[in-house]
């Protein structure tokens, strides 16, 4: 379906995925493990971006996603692309993780030390890395729904229609969330970059 899904399944390999799924359904653990290898980067990357780069939480969320997938093998039709289901489940798992984490930790309004101090350099590459860092931080600060829309639309590069399908909402809502999210990140970046100069 999406760029990301195509990337997850190597070209002409959908058949192999279907075969692995059929074997996994019959209880073949090795086949399930290989399926995991195909999707783990996609799931972890999405979880990392949803959870502001907090690695341990992203690993926990990814673990939840794959255990759910294992428990839900029966529901996948033959030849079905599991990527949309995985994206949706990842976003939901991260929402739950975010809720738990918020109870433990106060998110300050001031930019984290990492975003303020790290990676400043005169070269264009360093500038780009600096912007990426700020954007990562800005993304982490978005309200959950806007973050999910921006992660799927801009980070994962999916079409608005696909994002709406995964998040169970309308294209108009996704557009509005994406617009608001992008503007907030842009304002966040502007504030930080202005502070520096």
């Amino acid at each position: 379906m999406s760029m990301a899904a195509l990337e997850a399944i190597p070209d002409g390999d959908a058949e192999r995925s279907g075969e692995l799924m059929a074997r996994a359904k019959r209880g073949d653990a090795a086949a399930f493990e290989e399926l995991m290898r195909r999707y783990e980067r996609m799931v972890l990357r999405t979880a990392l971006r949803m959870l502001g780069g907090r690695r341990e939480e992203a690993e926990d969320a990814s673990q939840t996603v794959f255990l759910k997938m294992h428990g839900s093998l029966g529901r996948f039709r033959e030849g079905e692309d599991v990527a949309p289901w995985l994206y949706r489940t990842t976003v939901n798992a991260c929402r739950d993780a975010g809720r738990k984490a918020r109870r433990r930790r106060e998110v300050g309004l001031e930019p984290a030390a990492g975003a303020r101090d790290g990676g400043v350099g005169p070269e264009a590459a360093a500038e780009k890395e600096r912007l990426r860092e700020i954007v990562r931080e800005g993304l982490a600060r978005l309200p959950e729904k806007e973050r999910a829309a921006v992660v799927l639309r801009d980070v994962e590069g999916m079409e608005t229609r696909e994002v709406a399908g995964i998040l169970g909402t309308t294209e108009a809502t996704v557009r509005s969330q994406v617009r608001s999210g992008r503007r907030k990140i842009r304002e966040f970046a502007e504030r930080l970059l202005r502070k520096r100069t």
Binding site: L44, R45, A58, E59, Q63, R132, V135, R136, V155, G157
Partner: peptide, 24 residues
């Protein structure tokens, strides 16, 4: 900003994270 977001999408999670999740 959008370009930076795209670049972030190209960053692969660390292999050790993938292996950790898979093992667990």
């Amino acid at each position: 900003v959008r370009e930076a977001l795209e670049e972030i999408g190209a960053e692969e999670p660390e292999a050790v994270s993938c292996a950790t999740v898979r093992a667990r």
